[in-house]
Design a protein around this nucleic acid. Structure first.
Length: 110
DNA sequence: TTTCTGACTCGAA
DNA sequence: CTTCGAGCCAGAA
């Protein structure tokens, strides 16, 4: 499989699917893993197109641990509830103890 | 065809 | 200390 044939979105989806249960990551980390450290916004945009796929987009937040994309979920706190159900403490749309649940694809993936 | 926007991040003033 | 701008890719108008 030639990675060149995979568009940026495909790669983003591939990484996002590999986020372990109870962990979270940020857009910049995924972008950096893909070799485009400055394309964090594209990662977020890709999440917008992940609707209907098996992508746990609720595990992807901005680098501050803030649930910037929660507005794109149904209701007002669905994203937060999904994270809390996985053992992630979330207060005011912000992940608490982020370092404990943070998952960096650059370090965790080969 | 060009232009604009978006679930972001970082460096510089 | 705070504030601001530039860069990245893809899709829609």
């Amino acid at each position: 499989m030639k990675p060149e044939t995979l568009s940026f979105f495909e790669k983003v989806y591939d990484v996002a699917k590999q986020i372990p249960y109870g962990r979270v990551t940020n857009y910049g980390a995924i972008a950096k893993y893909l070799g485009a450290g400055k394309s964090a916004r594209i990662v977020g945009y890709a999440m917008n197109g992940s609707h209907g796929k098996d992508i746990p987009t609720h595990r992807v937040v901005n680098r501050k641990g803030l649930l910037t994309g929660k507005h794109h979920f149904e209701g007002t706190n669905l994203m937060q509830q999904l994270l809390e159900s996985e053992g992630v403490e979330v207060i005011e749309n912000q992940i608490q103890n982020l370092e404990a649940v943070y998952w960096d694809p650059v370090k965790e993936l080969p």
